[in-house]
Amino acid sequence: MPIHLANDHKTGDGVALAKLYGWPNTYVFTKAMGEMLVGQLRGNLPVVIMRPTIVCSTLMEPFPGWVEGCRTIDSVAIPADMFVNSIIVAMKAHINDPNLTIYQVGSSHRNPVTFNELREFHYAYFTKNPWTDHEVTLNFQQMLFNLQKKLKIATKLVDLYKPYLFFKACNFTDTNSEKLLTNAREKDLDEEVFNFDPLCVNWEDYFINIHLPAIVKYLF
């Protein structure tokens, strides 16, 4: 798909420009532009595009729960080390393939975790591990300022995620990733090292015993 941007559009209004071309925000618009450019300019190079869902703390490597940042967690997720494994396996599988191949890498189709489950996991963990030793004293002005600040952030998040929360037109299947895994297994994939099968993740165990303790220890 050729990229043609309207010359008369205001250059400073990225969101409006994204919406003009059918994208809800600049995040997905620029990702799409990047993929289009790669497709147009790759020549005869083998190219693989990996599309992960929310990438969260590691399941196994370099150790369970390794994480450097946490902006959000969603009902679509993949541990970081599993996503890295999928990249490595895909690179090997397509090293001599002249085509462009796209992989959706996530768990939401074959091993989903719901928002209700996420709430239950968080409640179970913090009920058992309360932050009773963290006391904060705020005066009224501080509380009001913090509330206003959080309200602004929440409003921005609502605007950002609204298109995805109410988007029911398609299902983000990982058919290509499933085929990649099947083919790799037929060629004796070492799953101790390169596992990226979302079916192996027990979400309750992962969140309560790996992800949430890691977030508390390394970030909070």
Rank of each mutant, 00 (worst) to 15 (best):
N44V: 07
L45I: 07
P46R: 02
V47F: 01
V47D: 03
V48T: 15
P52C: 11
P52L: 06
P52M: 10
T53H: 09
T53G: 11
C56D: 13
S57D: 06
M60G: 07
E61R: 14
P62K: 04
F63V: 13
P64T: 04
P64L: 08
G65N: 05
E68T: 15
G69A: 13
C70M: 12
T72N: 15
I73T: 14
I73Y: 14
D74W: 11
V76F: 12
V76S: 12
I78W: 02
P79A: 03
P79V: 08
P79I: 06
F83T: 00
V84W: 01
S86N: 05
A90V: 02
A93I: 04
H94L: 06
H94I: 06
P98N: 09
P98M: 08
N99T: 11
L100W: 02
L100P: 01
T101V: 15
I102G: 00
Q104M: 09
Q104N: 15
S107R: 02
S107W: 01
S108W: 10
N111W: 02
N111Q: 04
V113M: 09
T114C: 00
T114N: 01
F115R: 12
F115H: 13
F115K: 10
F115S: 12
E117G: 03
L118F: 04
L118K: 04
E120F: 01
E120Y: 09
F121P: 01
H122V: 13
H122A: 14
A124G: 02
A124S: 15
Y125V: 08
K128S: 12
W131I: 09
H134D: 10
T137P: 00
T137Q: 12
N139I: 05
N139K: 11
M143A: 15
F145E: 14
N146V: 03
L147Y: 15
K149Y: 12
K150C: 10
K150D: 08
